[in-house]
Write a protein that binds this DNA or RNA. Structure first.
Lengths: 217, 217
DNA sequence: GAACTAACTAACCAGATAGTTAATTAATTG
DNA sequence: CAATTAATTAACTATCTGGTTAGTTAGTTC
């Protein structure tokens, strides 16, 4: 009894699942902070509190580890997005909800945009070979297509909006602001990350997108 | 006479100005391609066809060299922008001209957006200490402020548009599309860099911004 | 409880990395 | 033309890099 404490979770000295999890979490942080080339395998191991060889044991290489981190990141944002209940909303409000969602998600998960950035610096070579991520994003596009169709039919939205262009613009307005916060804050001499400025940016984004997609009467 | 050819430019074996220029040009390419951490000092020297120590002789360090490259990039885009003759245009058209300019400039100078990206990955630490870049960008903001004031006065533009937000949105819609072209093309399964798609993106950007800034009558 | 498997560790490696040193040589100047 | 200065080179260094090797040890299975 004394050997196995009962009211604490058991701490086996070996735990493959936990080790994998710790590595993935540490890798996400490190890749987001430093980019792919800037990330250091030793630093990931240190952050995870794990021997460096464990990364190679479980993931094979720095590249494969990054691919896994990226896949997980895409899955998480799309799962959260899919959890929104948009079907009962009027089409214009559904679009506004998506603008708000992507902004909130970027703010809550700053590592997401940095990982995407890192991947594009690598010319998207990891994401190209991920069938899963491709599936995930296809349904994401389909959802927007549905909303636009619904809005075009009931006359609330324009009928000539390309869902790809719209998705890109929604992401762009928030993503660019956040990823370039350092140069922008310096150049425009304003703390663009203050709560007031963040709220204002969301207002501008919604205003801009609404104006573009809503049918003018 | 035969020693110094007259109809060719002289090629002195030593040429400080030319060496500096070659280093800066090579550094711009390398930093844009690989980011700050990913860039290799040896590769810059090779590209420039110059001994590595020349970089240290003229620029002191990898960091200072990057700062210089970044400053030059900002100066170039703002100089080109300032050369536009916008005063005689109606305010809405002046805004459209600026949307078109930034898009064309990004396409013509893909290294510019990649350098900005690299700098933000470095948390903007180089640009913070560049007084010149700050000056350059202040006049860039003033120009937009003037256009908005003119448009608000003559009733063609809304009078509640923040020039900072507008500048950011204009940059965002193009910048994001281009910097993330690899993941976006994969995810949406479309070659977003084909001439047709590029033209369509400019159309969407102009449509979006016009709709937001123009006063609805 | 012996045999086996998978988790884990430590020490190591070859090549790369930013930056330095010290000497050489071409242009300039008085 | 001698002295000086600035451009240029090659060789070097200490440290870091992703990845490997070879072994040890904790759980599991039969």
């Amino acid at each position: 009894m004394t050997q196995e404490p009962q009211n604490e979770e058991k701490k086996p000295r070996r735990n493959a699942a936990a080790t994998r999890r710790k590595i993935l979490s540490a890798a996400k942080e490190e890749f987001a902070q430093a980019g792919f080339e800037g990330a250091r395998v030793d630093r990931i191991a240190d952050r995870a509190g794990v021997n460096k060889n464990m990364l190679y044991h479980y993931f094979g290489s720095k590249d494969s580890l990054f691919s896994k981190v990226l896949d997980d990141a895409y899955r998480d944002i799309r799962q959260n997005e899919a959890a929104l209940e948009l079907d009962h909303l009027p089409a214009p409000e559904a679009v506004m909800a998506l603008v708000e969602f992507s902004w909130d998600y970027y703010l809550k998960h700053p590592e997401f945009i940095r990982l995407l950035n890192a991947e594009n610096q690598q010319k998207g070579r990891h994401v190209k070979s991920s069938a899963e991520t491709n599936d995930i994003n296809r349904t994401h596009l389909d959802r927007m297509r549905e909303i636009l169709k619904r809005g075009a039919t009931d006359g609330t939205l324009r009928d000539d909006i390309d869902p790809v262009q719209l998705n890109i613009s929604i992401a762009a307005l928030g993503f660019f602001y956040l990823i370039n916060q350092h140069t922008l804050s310096t150049v425009y001499q304003r703390d663009l990350m203050s709560p007031d400025e963040l709220a204002e940016r969301l207002r501008v984004m919604k205003d801009t997108i609404r104006c573009w997609v809503v049918r003018q009467h």
